[in-house]
């Protein structure tokens, strides 16, 4: 009898468990891969500075309190803007939808917040939003963003997943050195809109404080 046999053979028993538990994943997830990976029209991958900012977002784990997923309800579209589409996320590795809104959604924060607002807010949230329970992130004004890692990430996703970065993105140190001025230039544009002297000086020296990269990333969320 089949069931007798299954109960008595630990190996086939384990194989049985594996089949039963893996089939949901196989049928649910795998077939949609190609479809969910189609970008919306005109979607551009993030620049190296924005990627570095995304890594600051990951490092300080903003996802604990902020979502990036606007649900299709009037109350949400009124508050945050158009509801989110699958094709907007196709270059997000990892996805950063979050699961908790201790603070507001950020998926379109670039539409209604500016560089100087973020600068003041990251320095002292309750001063900008009275009653806010968000901690201040003053260390982001002194810590430096890791733009080299962000560049390596761009090259990796270009090679592995055909993310449309230009032909100049190559995994060599020389290519990185050639690209670096572009990153600094973008950082300078952000820093020009900020008032903090130390930030301006750091960027002029060729360094990118974390907060500059983070703001570049937040501004790109539209």
């Amino acid at each position: 009898m089949f069931f007798h046999w299954l109960e008595k053979n630990p190996f086939f028993f384990a194989a049985g468990i594996s089949i039963v538990i893996s089939f949901a994943g196989l049928l649910e997830i795998v077939p949609n891969f190609a479809e969910a990976a189609r970008p919306v029209v005109d979607l551009k991958p993030r620049t190296v500075l924005q990627l570095a900012g995304k890594n600051v977002y990951k490092k300080d784990n903003c996802i604990s309190c902020h979502s990036q997923m606007i649900r299709p309800f009037k109350s949400e579209t009124d508050r945050y803007g158009a509801y989110s589409l699958s094709g907007e996320y196709v270059y997000d590795r990892p996805f950063l939808w979050g699961s908790k809104r201790t603070g507001p959604d950020l998926h379109r924060v670039g539409n209604y917040r500016t560089t100087d607002w973020h600068e003041n807010h990251m320095w002292d949230p309750p001063a900008i939003v009275p009653g806010s329970i968000m901690p201040a992130y003053k260390h982001q004004f002194t810590n430096l963003a890791d733009i080299e890692t962000a560049y390596a990430e761009a090259v990796t996703v270009k090679n592995a997943f055909n993310t449309p970065y230009g032909p100049e993105f190559k995994g060599t140190r020389a290519a990185w050195e050639a690209h670096k001025p572009k990153v600094l230039e973008e950082a300078k544009r952000i820093a020009d809109d900020m008032k903090n002297k130390d930030i301006k000086e750091a960027v002029a020296r060729g360094e990118v404080p974390e907060v500059v990269a983070l703001i570049a990333y937040l501004n790109s969320l539209k």
């Binding site: 069931f3 039963v20 049928l27």
Partner: peptide, 23 residues
């Protein structure tokens, strides 16, 4: 692929339900 997915999940569910009741 959508149809395959639909048939796959339908028959797999039937199969496992039959197995469970058989058990």
């Amino acid at each position: 692929i959508r149809d395959l997915q639909g048939y796959g999940s339908f028959f797999m569910t039937i199969f496992l339900v039959v197995m469970l009741y058989g058990y």
